[in-house]
């Protein structure tokens, strides 16, 4: 093997899985920490982006998939554009979230995955996001009814909140898209 070729990950390892699913050769990370230095949310994370990559290299599956970090990442792509090895770290975060959902490991952040699932339910039932229904559904799941009611009321008065969702007629196609997603989940 030449010196410039990335290490071939061990078969069936967590690293191999991530490399395969994300298409990113994250073995080449040499821990320069530029990703973490520029991350706007680094101080709210339990693992910094460079640490996530290191733990993947060491096959620490539960530690990574159960971390807060993968949910706190806002996909701003600052890390991806600054990586000297051209690793698209934001894309790896997506892959990790997909795996975390399928793994059954308790997520490190409670509400964020709930929000995503409520958001997708909203698309499934209406085709579009009706912001008021989305927020009410999310609140009913997290039992936090009082937060931001003041801002909500102000936005309503300024005409920014629609009471009724808009109508659309692409329902059948949307159902098909979600059907194949749900089939894929059970595979």
């Amino acid at each position: 093997m030449s010196q410039n070729e990335p290490v071939i990950p061990k078969e069936n390892s967590f690293l191999a899985e991530i490399v395969q699913a994300s298409g990113e050769t994250l073995q080449v990370c040499y821990q320069c920490q530029k990703c973490s230095a520029g991350c706007p949310l680094g101080d709210a994370m339990d693992l910094l982006p460079n640490q996530v990559l290191r733990h993947i290299q060491y096959d620490h599956r539960e530690k990574v998939l159960g971390s807060k970090t993968i949910w706190i990442c806002a996909s701003c792509y600052t890390c991806s554009v600054r990586c000297p090895n051209d690793i698209d770290i934001a894309r790896i975060m997506d892959t990790l979230r997909h795996m975390a959902i399928r793994s059954g490991i308790t997520p490190g952040e409670k509400d964020i995955p709930v929000f995503h699932s409520v958001f997708l339910d909203e698309i499934k039932s209406r085709g579009r996001i009706h912001e008021l229904s989305l927020i009410l559904k999310f609140k009913s799941k997290t039992r936090d009814f009082l937060k931001d009611t003041g801002i909500g009321w102000k936005m309503f008065r300024l005409g920014k909140i629609r009471l009724l969702p808009s109508t659309f007629s692409g329902g059948k196609e949307i159902k098909e898209i979600f059907n194949s997603f749900e089939k894929g989940k059970n595979r």
């Binding site: 995503h116 958001f119 997708l120 085709g127 997603f181």
Partner: peptide
């Protein structure tokens, strides 16, 4: 005509194929 949600951040945080399909429609 009949546009639908692109999936926004929730679809790409959940499933690759779903995120692609919602936007591609």
């Amino acid at each position: 005509e009949n546009w639908t949600c692109c999936g926004a951040s929730s679809a790409h945080c959940t499933d690759e194929a779903l995120a692609l399909a919602l936007a591609a429609r």
